[in-house]
Amino acid sequence: MNISWDHFTAFAIPVLISWLLAIITVFTSKKRWLNNIFTLAGIVGFATFIVLLWISLDRPPMRTMGETRLWYTFFLSTIGFVMYVKWKYNWIKAFSLVVASVFIFINILKPEIHSKNLMPALQSIWFVPHVTAYILSYSFLSAAAIAAVILLWQYKKQRETTTLEAFTDNLVYVGFGLLMTGLLIGAIWAKEAWGHYWSWDPKETWAFITAAAYLIYIHVRLRESRPKKFTLWLIIFSFIFLMITWKGVAYLPSAQGSVHVYSE
């Protein structure tokens, strides 16, 4: 059977429906196996398309923007599933499936991007894991920033917060683990593509700033039983650095000429 992009919608619709059911049941049903089955059905269906496309192209589908999006969808849903099994956070499953679905929608609704070309430097097996780790890291660290704001507000109201404190710490730990995974994969890739693993390119510098800020939070917390207000503010500042790294670098005057800014 010769699979091509023309068959994509036929695979994508059932996948989207099963993930929609997974998102609904994760919030409405107490039976975890139910939403896990819907999630897995979608992942298996989607993986089938990738495998068949790979076979019919006779090369890994990793050369165009549309092909790259296939892997985002696959890894986001898979890692989101594993993270849910491990940590049982409803929102992480919902988030990863929603973002995975967004990539499917882009591929259905803007078909011309299947042939949008990747420049040679981006054609690498490290591209997809690098970006996937960051997308998931941003979701955990965004959740941590929201949790920090809620904690600060509850401190003001002098409410009991022990559970949320532990939850916040865990979000930062897992988010930081993903952040470092993305960064180190990036370093390995940079050595292969650009000749050096760390060049203090503006994007790299801001990634270092972000990592250092979260590291300060993690270390300060080791000596506190309950986070001080200042410590919670560290999460919020770190998150601002994260946003600068992600989106802000392109606008910084100091970053003109960064190799990480891919403009059309």
């Binding site: 897992v174 470092m180 995974t181 180190l184």
Partner: peptide
């Protein structure tokens, strides 16, 4: 590379371990 791969392994274990103190 030795440093990067050790650190990378540590980061991936961090995903699994989370914050031990919290648990």
């Amino acid at each position: 590379y030795v440093g990067i791969f050790m650190f990378l392994a540590g980061s991936i274990f961090l995903l699994w371990e989370g914050n031990k103190k919290a648990r």
